[in-house]
Nucleic acid binder design. Structure first.
Lengths: 205, 205
DNA sequence: CGTACAAGCGGAGGGTTCTCCGCTTAGGTC
DNA sequence: GACCTAAGCGGAGAACCCTCCGCTTGTACG
């Protein structure tokens, strides 16, 4: 517990003073994991196997990534950076420039797409760390972004809670359930979100 | 896959034609599990240990309950039955008799209490079966109940999606996060729900 | 009561996650 | 270049979940 808990900050990247061999091994582990995911799929990804493929001991894998969820989040890193850039500095309506209400809608729709794209990895990661998820780097960024937009669009006693409440139905598990059990398409899910926003007065019409 | 999947219907109770020895063993397993939970806590509950405590083979435990999540749900059964009775046939505003809007609010508040009461077991169960949770007996009942009330209170294109969206922020994991990381009390969480209902027009004033 | 067979039982064993701790090494300092 | 120390490494092993399949037993029926 001395060093910062990397599991709760999976996107903090490498600590500033990481030894050269450690950095090299981090890369080797990520590369090995990507190879294995590409071949056998995410669900079958075992950390023992990753270690073998990377020609390292399992202890090294755990030292670098904390646990299974940590490695899975690290694998999501690239796509995540691009997504964050899109809604913080990209083109409107997702990026700055559009009215808050439109940005909220665009953000939630884009989040559905993001979940769709990384479906398998997200399902695994969420299920490996169901509570820690809410302290994970990406989720924290989403919540902050959305709560600011909500406050801008409409005064509220606790915009952060509202943000959590709007993000909750967009967990990978929930979306997977809506699709496979209820037979909804991603478009249906976006329509559901629109209805929720309309009822809440965040979307006019 | 021939027999009905007990994992998705954890509250269906014992099948009508269960052999006497099987029923006896079911009880012994539940009793043993309760003892162990009382002593060591829910998180440390291992099915191997349950089997040892119940003086049965692990195979028997798995035959009866499917998997870890199944056993955990079975442990919740008693409280769950009482809760369901309260909102289907109990006193208003939770039970029938009150206006839909009030029943919605009462139900969500009661659900927070229910989650608070069975916090540990629910956290474990959710984390053991993150997607299957939405097909579990209790969740299915909640969704049905809430979607009917929502339809009654206000026309909507997809009341079932709205129900899911309102239930999502009340997962044990989310509530645990709100409490431990954001420092909210259960009362704060209920207030957040009220705000959400108010914004959505399901609660006037 | 005897028989047949569906249902139940047990526990060895495979696969996985994660820990622990003694050994090795990178890289700054003199 | 030699030394020192914090950082990193490895892999045996503990603990766990779950499966599989040969054996046992309850029970319905003649």
């Amino acid at each position: 517990m001395d060093e910062p808990d990397r599991r709760t900050l999976p996107f903090a990247g490498a600590p500033p003073s990481e030894r050269a061999d450690a950095a090299r091994n981090r890369r080797r582990i990520i590369d090995a994991a990507c190879r294995l995911v590409a071949n056998r799929g995410t669900a079958a990804l075992s950390l023992d196997e990753v270690a073998r493929e990377a020609q390292l001991g399992v202890g090294t894998v755990y030292r670098r990534f904390g646990d299974r969820a940590g490695l899975l989040y690290a694998l999501l890193d690239d796509g995540e950076r691009r997504f964050q850039a899109a809604f913080t500095t990209g083109e409107p309506p997702l990026g700055p420039g559009a009215p808050a209400a439109e940005r909220i809608r665009a953000f939630l729709h884009a989040l559905v797409d993001q979940v769709a794209t990384h479906r398998d990895l997200l399902l695994e990661a969420e299920s490996a760390a169901p509570v820690a998820r809410f302290s994970s780097g990406p989720y924290t960024v989403y919540r902050l972004h959305l709560s600011i937009l909500l406050r801008e669009a409409r005064p509220a006693a606790d915009p952060v809670f509202l943000a959590d409440a709007l993000l909750a139905p967009l967990s990978a598990a929930m979306i997977e359930y809506q699709r496979t059990q209820r037979g909804l398409s991603y478009a249906d899910i976006k329509a559901g979100i629109d209805e929720l926003l309309r009822l809440s007065g965040f979307l006019t019409r």
